[in-house]
Simulated scan of single mutants.
Amino acid sequence: MRIPPLYQRKGYQRFFAGVAIGFIIGWAFFLFQGGLAHEKLIHKIAKLQAEIIDYKKKNEILTSDDEKANEELAKKFKLHEINVRFSNTSSDKLSNLTKLHLTKAVEDDLEHLIGEDTETIAKSHALLVQAIENKIFELDDEQKYEVQIDHLYLYTGILRIYISAHNVE
């Protein structure tokens, strides 16, 4: 059996040539439209990535500013320093060395408060006053002193205490 020689007929040749040319034109159209759509998507993705980078930078700046503000706020509300000073009324009776030793003893007694919240210290200031006033400080020269708090000031990071001392016999 033999295949009929259809390649010699002009109608079939035109049909197959039209199919081949249509296929080539269709494939070119598909590539052109797909390329345009792909190019639009690439531009859109690049634009969105640039926006994401900008938003990340803005977010980083804002969060770093917030973190700095929070750290400064936390530092403000924590106790950093304790100053003990003698009030003017009791400073005439004691020597300077005794005053120095008493202020150092009171500061050492309150040293555990450094780093605490000022709000907590403010709430328990009565307990703080009683703890200092009820303690008897014994110095190197075997003399015992009782300290009385005249004023207590609590600033943002500083606790300032004005005391007067009396010799306990």
Rank of each mutant, 00 (worst) to 15 (best):
R2H: 10
I3T: 13
P4R: 14
P4A: 12
F15A: 05
F16C: 01
F16Y: 10
G18F: 14
A20V: 09
A20I: 10
I21A: 13
G22E: 03
G26R: 01
G26I: 07
W27I: 14
F29H: 07
F32Y: 11
G34H: 15
L36H: 11
A37K: 08
A37N: 07
H38P: 00
K40M: 14
K40V: 14
L41W: 09
K47V: 14
K47S: 15
L48S: 11
E51D: 15
E51M: 11
I52N: 12
I52F: 11
I53L: 09
K58H: 10
K58M: 08
E60S: 07
I61C: 08
S64P: 04
D66H: 08
E67I: 14
A69M: 13
E72A: 13
L73D: 09
A74I: 08
A74L: 15
K76W: 13
K76T: 09
K78L: 10
I82A: 00
I82C: 01
N83V: 03
V84G: 01
N88R: 12
S91I: 04
D92H: 15
L97P: 00
T98N: 02
T98K: 04
T103S: 05
E107Q: 01
D109I: 01
E119C: 05
T120V: 06
T120F: 05
K123G: 05
K123P: 07
K123C: 02
L128W: 04
Q130A: 12
N134T: 12
I136A: 02
E138V: 04
L139F: 06
E146R: 05
E146P: 00
L152D: 03
L154D: 02
I158E: 06
L159H: 04
L159C: 05
R160E: 15
Y162R: 00
A165R: 09
V168Y: 08
E169V: 13
